[in-house]
């Protein structure tokens, strides 16, 4: 019993209780919800205007920059708490997925040794960076690959079908940030 009390004394007084996840961050939680609303509304509006001058990429570059900057602010906040170790997947998750997707899994998420989860704050940063990549991909579709209008007079646009699929995919990345913050909050 005496040993147990001493162990408890050490545990409670001597060593800090290990944090395996970054603490809940209200700014990121609310920020990503606001981003979701603004981004979804924007993409739907742009798709509705496909084929019209107001639906071109050139007419909407400012809005892309606003959305991009909002994400940069959230990324900066998450990154400022990170210790630069990078975000790693849990080893067992990585093993299973690596078997399914042998050539498609990004090397940076590979767990190294026992430090499988890497830096918990870096995972928050990574989730937000992935949302930024999604925004940039939609920007590329809008500016380069989607075209509307009569042959020979095509203009840049975001087609209805592209916008629906792109939004559905991008929302998975946004949802990932939101779900993790909600789990920490509850």
């Amino acid at each position: 019993m005496r040993a147990l009390v001493l162990a408890a004394a050490l545990l409670l007084g001597g060593c800090p209780w290990q944090q395996v996840v970054s603490p809940y961050d209200e700014v990121i939680d609310k920020g990503i919800v606001e981003f979701y609303e603004e981004f979804n509304l924007f993409v739907k509006d742009v798709a509705d205007a496909a084929g019209k001058p107001e639906g071109t990429y050139e007419a909407n570059t400012k809005k892309y920059n606003v959305l991009d900057t909002k994400l940069d602010v959230l990324i900066l906040r998450a990154r400022s708490r990170s210790q630069g170790e990078g975000c790693k997947l849990e080893a067992k998750v990585y093993e299973k997925v690596a078997k399914l997707l042998p050539n498609d899994l990004p090397a940076e998420v590979r767990p190294e040794g026992q430090n499988a989860a890497g830096d918990a704050n870096a995972c928050n940063t990574r989730l937000l960076e992935l949302v930024k990549r999604q925004l940039n991909s939609i920007r590329t579709i809008h500016s380069k690959t989607d075209k509307c209008g009569p042959r020979g007079q095509e203009i840049s646009c975001l087609r209805k079908a592209s916008s629906e699929d792109a939004l559905s995919i991008a929302n998975q990345s946004i949802n990932a940030v939101s779900v993790v913050e909600a789990a920490k909050r509850n």
């Binding site: 998420v109 990574r126 989730l127 992935l130 991909s137 779900v179 789990a183």
Partner: peptide
């Protein structure tokens, strides 16, 4: 480009799953 987006979304889900497990721990 949409397939590349789907690959990024897959990474988001995997990272979030790991994070949810760690939140539970």
């Amino acid at each position: 480009i949409l397939m590349k987006m789907q690959r990024d979304a897959c990474e988001s889900v995997l990272v979030a799953t790991t994070q949810l497990t760690l939140v539970a721990v």
